[in-house]
């Protein structure tokens, strides 16, 4: 064959070779089909462990009870028992090791999430909760100055 045919051919072969070489270096060993479907299970296996090691922030109220027995006991007797501690106190992530005090949310808006009156028909789950009309009930005062959030049946002295 003539040179003008062979020359570009070698260039093309070289480029393809380079692509394969680059793939060998750049693509990790654990990348491939892991499962029964090429469409859905073509991935880097190591990524699963990366997600499993993602840090957990919310610890659950069973962790709180270890130190805060009294508050947890009051709370578990009250109609608020279904509300998780960390909903209001924030995620306990590294408390008490790194963060000594959790940023407690005492805002009125916190309580209004459930207790703002929306005036919906009885079939709505919201209408079954005790509710206030924000602009008529003790405006701009924090609810917790009068109501005990751990047990709303008790008033704050």
């Amino acid at each position: 064959m003539k040179r003008h045919v062979l020359h570009p051919l070698w260039v093309a072969v070289g480029v393809v070779g380079l692509i394969f070489l680059a793939r060998l270096v750049l693509v990790p060993d654990d990348f491939g089909v892991h499962g029964d479907s090429f469409t859905y299970n073509y991935y880097r296996l190591g990524n699963i462990d990366e997600w499993k090691n993602f840090p957990v922030k919310y610890q659950g109220s069973d962790t709180c009870v270890e130190c805060h027995k009294d508050n947890v006991r009051t709370h578990r007797r009250s109609p608020h028992k279904r509300v998780q501690c960390e909903n209001c106190h924030g995620p306990a992530a590294s408390h008490p090791d790194d963060i000594e005090y959790l940023p407690l949310n005492r805002e009125r808006a916190m309580c209004l999430r459930c207790h703002a009156d929306l005036d919906y028909p009885e079939s709505s789950a919201r209408s079954n909760l005790p509710a206030i009309v924000d602009r008529h009930h003790k405006r701009r005062r924090e609810c917790v100055t009068c109501h005990n959030p751990h047990d709303p049946r008790e008033d704050v002295e």
């Binding site: 990348f31 499962g35 479907s37 859905y40 299970n41 073509y42 991935y43 880097r44 990524n47 699963i48 990366e50 997600w51």
Partner: peptide, 18 residues
């Protein structure tokens, strides 16, 4: 690029590196 996939337990994950 194969950066999102279905795990054995049915959850679809995204590979942030990929």
């Amino acid at each position: 690029v194969g950066a999102t996939y279905k795990t054995e337990d049915g959850v679809v994950l995204i590979d942030r590196e990929w």
